[in-house]
Amino acid sequence: MSDMVFRFPEPGPEPMTADLDGWTKVEGEPGMKTWVQHTSIDGSVISGTWEATPGTWHASYKFYEFVHLIEGRIVITPDGGAPVMLGPGDGFAVEPGFEGTWKIEAPVRKHFCIKLK
């Protein structure tokens, strides 16, 4: 049964560095690193660690995401909506269909869990 619980190790040396699908830089030169550290047994959920440097992306979401922000500051603003300010220790979810900006105000590290199916 120990294979039913997965503890994240430190992220490895080779992250994905391309911008995520649906994410477009709109201010500054933000960069991101993504480590997918676990995939559920049925393949419907991925989780891992994500880091980003200051700047702004416009993001379009296809899937549900739960986030635990470890460090940094983000202002997420839905298109036509009010900004949501998030900092270390905050947990939040982004629903599929979200469109808006992610402004990274201080370097970010987060754990994520994305439901693909």
Rank of each mutant, 00 (worst) to 15 (best):
W50Y: 14
L116R: 14
D42G: 05
D90E: 09
G81F: 06
D19P: 02
E65P: 04
R73K: 14
P107C: 12
G43C: 11
A93P: 05
E105K: 10
P13W: 04
K103E: 15
G80F: 11
V84W: 06
V75W: 05
D21W: 02
C113N: 10
R73W: 01
T34F: 07
D90C: 12
G97M: 05
S44W: 13
V36I: 14
I104H: 01
L116N: 10
T53S: 15
W35M: 09
T39H: 03
H68F: 10
F63Q: 11
T101H: 01
T34G: 04
V26M: 00
P9E: 09
D42C: 08
W50K: 02
F98K: 03
G97A: 11
G12T: 00
D90K: 06
S2H: 07
T34R: 14
K25M: 05
F66N: 09
I70Y: 03
P107M: 06
S2P: 02
E14A: 10
H111I: 13
S40E: 08
H68K: 11
G80P: 09
G81Q: 06
M32W: 01
W35R: 05
E29G: 10
L116G: 04
I74L: 15
G87C: 07
E105P: 00
V45Q: 12
H58G: 01
E10Q: 11
T17P: 01
V108P: 01
G12K: 00
W35A: 04
G87V: 09
E27Q: 14
P54R: 01
Y61A: 07
F112I: 08
K103H: 14
Y61H: 08
E51D: 13
S44C: 13
G89I: 10
D19N: 14
